[in-house]
Design a protein around this nucleic acid. Sequence first.
DNA 1: CACTAGCACTTCAGTGATTAGAGTGCTAAA
DNA 2: TTTAGCACTCTAATCACTGAAGTGCTAGTG
Lengths: 352, 352
Amino acid sequence: MNLEYRLSDRKRDILTAIIKDYITHGEPLGSKTLAKRHGFTFSPATIRNEMAELEENGLLYQPHTSAGRVPSQKGYRFFVDYLMGAYVPTREEMHFMQRLQQTSRAVEAILSQATRVLAEATQSIAITETPYLRQNPVKELRLIPLSENSMVLDIEYNSGIRRQSVVNFSQSIYADVLGLLTYYLNTQLNQSSSLVGLFHRIATCSLEREIQTYRSIILEMVSEIYAQSQRDEKVYLNGTSHLLREPEFQSMEQAFPIINILEDERFVRRLFDSCQESSPQQSHNVYCLIGNENAYEELHNCSFVATPYFINTKATGMIGVLGPTRMDYSKVIALLQNVASNMTTTLGRLFS
Amino acid sequence: MNLEYRLSDRKRDILTAIIKDYITHGEPLGSKTLAKRHGFTFSPATIRNEMAELEENGLLYQPHTSAGRVPSQKGYRFFVDYLMGAYVPTREEMHFMQRLQQTSRAVEAILSQATRVLAEATQSIAITETPYLRQNPVKELRLIPLSENSMVLDIEYNSGIRRQSVVNFSQSIYADVLGLLTYYLNTQLNQSSSLVGLFHRIATCSLEREIQTYRSIILEMVSEIYAQSQRDEKVYLNGTSHLLREPEFQSMEQAFPIINILEDERFVRRLFDSCQESSPQQSHNVYCLIGNENAYEELHNCSFVATPYFINTKATGMIGVLGPTRMDYSKVIALLQNVASNMTTTLGRLFS
DNA sequence: CACTAGCACTTCAGTGATTAGAGTGCTAAA
DNA sequence: TTTAGCACTCTAATCACTGAAGTGCTAGTG
């Protein structure tokens, strides 16, 4: 039987009060304080009894006898799933987040700005990953001759993103051959849809007769395409200092592992990946890893909330917030969604 | 009269001993400890007298009466200028730093890898700035038609770096007009040498008659070039966690301002700028800001050592190390120079 | 029967007081 | 000029003590 139905209204009120107070004050809550602060119709003694039962259910715990109660990880999860209400951003917050729409026309600038805005608004760490280009479906690929042994490679993704790079060949090549290759690569792309797919296809399948002569050039080209898209994969991170202001990270022992692990970009990417493996929050596509629901020991008292952003209705990357487990979930989720949808709008306008 | 000539050999020995010991142990040095550790031919009492005089000269100070001596900022400066010897990297360090040469063919990858290697080798924060493209002299600019209202813009810098981007026009344009514009822009570039110069020229000077019709297109193009090069300006930073391991940054009060300020990329760029305003160390082009010689209150107990790296003998950007004032200067400088020269080699090979 | 007032008990965080250790400056002697 | 000796200083660590906040349990009340 689900806990949701087993808890009396009073228990839910008390649990909600404890979690909300703990989120804002960061200190264990005692029965007396709670009673005074919320003007409950029942006495501290009653609260004590209820709290004892909530603790039996695993929703609260005491750091030590004679301390107040603190929400457990399960408590936060219950709160996020059933108790917390929707947060409505204030006028100032809305206004602040609008800034995003005024930025320049470059994808990089938009992602970086979104990350900064989100970090500032939530007073936590914000992280954005660039579109995962290698798996993005490609719309068209163009090879434009530049000199006799170099060309411009122009890739246009379905999402509208477009990247160019110059490829140099070890041998000279005629324009009509480039035309042939362009046609060939585009048909191959249609069947493999993404660069990862194309890469595998070319590397494993045997080439058709008319193309075989150009095998080495094709390989050169494809590996250049692949390298190029890999080079563009990046992660924007902002707001580390906000996390360090929280009382739970005042000691280096707590703060160090986090700063340490966040220095590794590959790790951050994996955080997004692991996030997608969990099931998203019912509330609109938001993934929420509470405490050690994420796989990393170093982040066991952090939570990570993330959501995808889109370019022309195609999911391309994710943006998220990393904060203490004791974060204001409803607020963070609301602001995150707002920034993500702002991004989607701004990016969409860019590629329309 | 310069201090260098006023100090007796014995004083120099004692000062050197104190600074070296302090660098490795991080604790104030007393006369007795010093005598025991270095087997001096004179007694602790003599050391005490000498230390008192060194303190009068402002080279040492006591955190409090009854504590040992600690090098002052002036002390470090004297040490770096006159006392420290050259450091010879160990075989392991050399080997470790060789890794750099095995990286991929992308500038980004090389800079990022160099930063990581340097941070690891020095156990401090390493910072690298990308080439300051807007001020880099341009060798040639090519406009390659793509469709009737878009083109590929290909910029080749003197250093060998080359960047492409697609520019869309609001109106359609003929291939022969592009040819004319290519010619025009390249002659303008010859006279202004860098993109910053070109940008100013175009914006302020009146255009020649034959070109005037295309004024709006030229402006569009130039601002796109400018935006593109600005977009590529970046800073790589690695090794924050190393700094946090040092005893002087164990408390959040010390660590916070540093982490906070390093989050701002513009600040880091300015650090490189301010560094170049100081005069370089006699020893091969290394700039060294000790303690609050840098302009930032937040870094008053850090030092910053930096050196330029080159592509084909042209200075393009800088790489540096940020560590506690109590850093092993000779070692850091040696490793920094080594990594920088490795970069120069690797980058040179890339653009030969 | 559910609730609450009262009380004994627990734990932590902060406050002095005390002490050991490391270092200094000064003086007098070698 | 150098050094041994000594009185003095300051810090950091330890310990005992106290007050605040909180709990669980019991007995009484509507």
